[in-house]
Amino acid sequence: MTISQVLFIVISLVVLGGGVMVVTARNLFHAALFLIVSFFGVTGLYVLLDAGFFAAAQFLVYIGAISILIIFAVMLTRGVQLAQPANSQWPAALVVSVIVFAIMALMLGPVAVTIGQRQFGSVSWPNVVEGQPAPAVPDDHLVRLGQSFVDFNQYGAAFLLTAVLILVAMVGAIWVARDRALKDVMEERAELAAEEAQEAMLAGPVQQPLPLAETRSAEAPAASVAHH
């Protein structure tokens, strides 16, 4: 066994072990942390594939952002400590997982399966010859990646569509947050004004500390009430 094979097995154990702990942990917060362990293992897989950019992106996006989001969601739920890690939906989840796994195994696996007219599986990976070490990653792979994102013959359209999707989500998030904030501000101001009115009523004719631009005509009626 070569060193990279040993590393691959160790990292895979981290990924799978983290994944198993996610679904078996009774404490939801611990489950979220094990998910981070699993994500970290995936980062290691990218490093093993000589894909440094993807490793850093995986780290930044999944560990730095998505896991934080998940932990926040966990903190806002009420039952962090569960009696049972599974709920009543587990049979449905099991069926879905098995189907997804079967599809992926079918698409990527080495065995060719014919369903109806079409043949699935036995993917021929580019530039890979059986029994030979994989070809080295080209030096300019980052440049090629960047160019493929702006080239409309490759992934330009998909890249733009993704960007628009994210933009829509951002605008939506801002809109939701903004609407609520404005309402809160208006309610707060209304409460403040009501409190001030009550204070003015209790204090009666005694002059309140007035804001700078208070007009005189507003004071006059208060004074006349006191005379009566």
Binding site: R189, A193, E196, A197, A200, M201, E214, S217, A218, A222
Partner: peptide, 26 residues
């Protein structure tokens, strides 16, 4: 913000003093 707080204060004061329809001029 200043203008809004100002106008609310004025309205409240007018309501409290019983001259909600507008204060008489001096």
């Amino acid at each position: 913000e200043e203008a809004e707080i100002e106008s609310r204060r004025e309205a409240n004061r007018a309501a409290v003093s019983g001259f909600a329809g507008g204060a008489p001029a001096r």
